[in-house]
Nucleic acid binder design. Structure first.
Lengths: 107, 107
DNA sequence: TTGTTATATTGCAATATTACGATGTTATCG
DNA sequence: CGATAACATCGTAATATTGCAATATAACAA
């Protein structure tokens, strides 16, 4: 155990969980907030922005890329990372679907 | 290590990460999907719906409650769990804020 | 070539998460 | 009262995550 049991759940459920999990770390939220703030999406100075060592940041970027939340292009010596809005939209749709039902019958 | 470093990040960043993390497991997504599907929000038969043992489900419910995503009221022998939409809305607002900027200058 | 800059990968220690059997707890039923 | 039903909690094994130093790689500059 320690392993997440994914067999009994639908593909959609598993994908949503995987995306949410990728966002479930302050460093990764901070990366996304920084990307949003940036004019360009080149983020070479992330190391100076976050209170984490360079390998740790690299690891978090990898996880976000793996989940499909950001995409990166090599641009000379640095790398250009940008948000992939299609995945964000998936999450947005899911969360929005929760607000429609107002069966507040007991709570 | 193994411990998440939260000191260097803003309160908002940490809270968002904490909420997303709570959603980062298929069982917890399934619980929320089930809550959405239900007419009433009494969810005593979650044990029959999910491919997990009762203590495991109880643990996941606790985590969702801890994050403030669901709230539970005792109702006789069973417990009534419902979504707390205010937290959902926080996430919704964050995700929506990512879609406004269209600085697709490189990717 | 040598050096520098930007990033990735490896390896590991510390800690967290997941899952579940066993066992509590609490309310209701007979 | 005792039995049952619906949870919660405890304890623990297996595995995952986090963070970083050390090291590798790759592109460019001098």
């Amino acid at each position: 155990m320690g392993t997440t049991k994914s067999e009994g759940f639908s593909t959609e459920t598993n994908e949503l969980a995987h995306l949410f999990k990728a966002l479930g770390h302050p460093a990764r939220i901070a990366i996304i907030q920084f990307l949003r703030k940036q004019e360009s999406c080149i983020c070479n100075d992330l190391v100076n922005e976050l209170p984490l060592a360079q390998p740790t940041i690299s690891q978090h970027l990898k996880e976000l890329k793996n989940a499909g939340i950001i995409k990166g292009n090599i641009s000379g010596t640095s790398i250009c990372y940008c948000l992939d809005l299609s995945k964000i939209k998936l999450l947005d749709v899911f969360l929005a679907s929760l607000s429609y039902d107002q069966n507040q019958s007991c709570c």
